[in-house]
Amino acid sequence: MPRFYFDVRAGAESMPDPEGLELDGLEAAEHEATQTVLTLGRDWLPCLREICVEVRDEQHRLRLSLSVALTVAYFE
Rank of each mutant, 00 (worst) to 15 (best):
E32R: 06
Y74I: 11
D57P: 01
V37D: 00
R42G: 12
V37L: 06
V53L: 02
D43P: 01
D7H: 11
E50S: 07
M15Q: 14
C52G: 09
R61H: 15
R61A: 14
T71K: 12
F75L: 14
R42F: 05
C52A: 15
S65C: 09
A12M: 08
T39W: 07
P18M: 02
L48E: 04
F75N: 11
R63P: 04
E22T: 12
R9E: 14
F4G: 01
L21S: 08
R3M: 03
R49W: 08
L62A: 13
V68W: 02
E30D: 13
T34L: 12
P18V: 04
D17A: 04
I51L: 10
Y74G: 12
D57K: 03
G20S: 01
S67I: 03
H60D: 15
E32C: 07
R49A: 14
C47V: 14
Q35H: 11
D57H: 04
H60G: 07
Q35A: 15
V8H: 02
H31C: 10
R9Q: 13
S14H: 15
Q35Y: 03
V55L: 05
A73C: 05
A69E: 09
I51Q: 01
M1K: 13
L45S: 03
A12R: 13
S14P: 00
A73G: 07
L70M: 07
V8A: 04
G41R: 00
G20F: 06
R9T: 14
D24E: 15
E13Q: 11
V72I: 09
